[in-house]
Amino acid sequence: MKNAPTIFLREMRNYFVSPIAYVALIVFTLLTGYFFAAYFNMATRYEGEANLRMLFHNMSITMLFLAPLITMRLLAEEKKSGTIEVLLTSPVTDAEVVIGKFAASMAMFIIMLILTFLCPLFLMIYGNPDIVPMIVGYLGLILLGGAFMSLGVVTSSLTDNQIVAALISFVMLLGLWVIGWMSTTVGSQVGKILSYISLMEHFDDFSKGVMDTKHVIYYISFTVFCLFLAIKSVQSAKWK
């Protein structure tokens, strides 16, 4: 794994020379700020609770749209320009490439989250919130982000077109987000499976401030599985 940090640093630099990073950061902070202001306003007027539960939900939905934008270029761009040929003939492993790139997208996401720390700060100044649920909520967002980004890395490895990569990744994320809605309509066994697969169902507890290992394990195994697929996909591109 000694080359993963090198690849990570190059990706980070690349994010900040292209407009994508700035657009994602601005859009995410703007929207989060708006959601927070709207809720805060309502909560103070009608004596609501001083927590970020609604906000975490809104942030997760926003991420659903922004995550594909962050991950789309990771491998697709290298495939399009041909730089992947130089990269993969250097003494680096496919895993190092995938992990380095995934880590860069995660770092981007964490920077986005840090910029929203103003919201809990405001809450602490003007209210008296529980700190632990907010920490748990942010932790949940990071785990969710890991799942989003790893899926994005997979779709980016499948095509040399960034738009296609973003679109596939968005459709898949949305599908996995809402798949639980069908759980009551289909049989109880299938329904259980559907709601277990759903990315959204597992996030609910985090937003309430409840940390359950089963959800942690779900997100981590989802991420690891996607990264595994991405590594295999990078390898298999050479087999054809």
């Binding site: 190059r10 690349n14 020379v17 292209s18 320009s81 041909g82 730089t83 992947i84 130089v86």
Partner: peptide, 12 residues
């Protein structure tokens, strides 16, 4: 190795 058409990271 220098592949055909010399792909480079253009922003660097």
């Amino acid at each position: 190795y220098m592949p055909e058409n010399v792909p480079l990271y253009t922003e660097m």
